[in-house]
Design a protein around this nucleic acid. Structure first.
Lengths: 145, 145
DNA sequence: TTACTTGCAAATCGTTTGCGATATA
DNA sequence: TATATCGCAAACGATTTGCAAGTAA
């Protein structure tokens, strides 16, 4: 990440991107794998993972890191938000008041029964910002078709 | 979850809660495990996990499910928010405009370099709401000391 | 006394990676 | 032809679980 990349538009990559674009249900890698196998029966799950990684680095798709299995715990049971360092994983409290009304703004607009929300800021902690900014190369990448 | 629970205040549970309350760095289960071992050298990692689960169900602590390894992918690269069903894991887009200014509100207040944010609503999809509400028992639980 | 909880070890699950083979540019 | 990418299988890391023994209420 944050590095230059030469990429090739392989058959696998193309099908993965096309299939994902067709779906509107935010599939997991495994669900997408099952779909893609209709067209490429010999594709491997590892290939799907690798391509999703590449495509999201290029900004062609989004990776939703939600509801993960790696948990962190907070001794403070009061609702509040967090900032996470994208480099070292450090987590701090975010200096922003809890927005207790934000859930109401969905009231007529969704059929879900809303139970809560989670807001997380992503960034670089002061220490990592030093390191990363020192070696950052802002190269733009383009994707073929 | 969502079920009644009789709990006992064991030595392990007490130390885990006390230690976590002392820490302000949002530890992972493993980090907490290392700390607790100072007091209870024979405690197992499984016990730490089980207790953290119980304590968060009781509302004594918070479980931060961030930055997880379980990913989902979105063919739409435009920034937007999501609603996730806490019962079946289904994910839909949230009908809420992207708040492009919210990151600015942290500007003077944190030393982090903010790169983005993620907002996720948690709730029950229409199907699961049916099921769950049918068998919900709203029992309050208390924790000893 | 009893059923909740523990320590231990094995199992699980999503994801990542090393390898030699393949195919894109 | 170069080397990015592939398929495969093994490795990985966090978490969960089965079980027999221990213990709080």
């Amino acid at each position: 990440m944050l590095t230059e990349r030469n990429m090739r538009m392989t058959r696998q990559r193309k099908v993965i991107l096309e299939e994902l674009r067709k779906m509107n249900n935010h599939p997991s890698a495994d669900e997408l794998y099952e779909r893609v196998r209709q067209y490429l029966p010999r594709i491997s799950l590892g290939t799907v993972y690798r391509n999703l990684e590449v495509l999201s680095e290029l900004g062609e798709i989004q990776k939703l890191e939600i509801s993960g299995t790696l948990k962190r715990f907070d001794g403070n049971p009061k609702k509040h938000y967090h900032i996470r360092c994208m480099n070292c994983g450090r987590v701090d409290d975010a200096p922003l008041d809890f927005m207790k009304n934000i859930e109401n703004s969905l009231l007529g607009a969704t059929k879900y029964k809303i139970m809560g929300h989670r807001l997380e800021f992503i960034g670089l902690c002061p220490e990592c910002f030093e390191q990363v900014s020192a070696r950052w190369q802002g190269k733009k990448l383009k994707i073929g078709s």
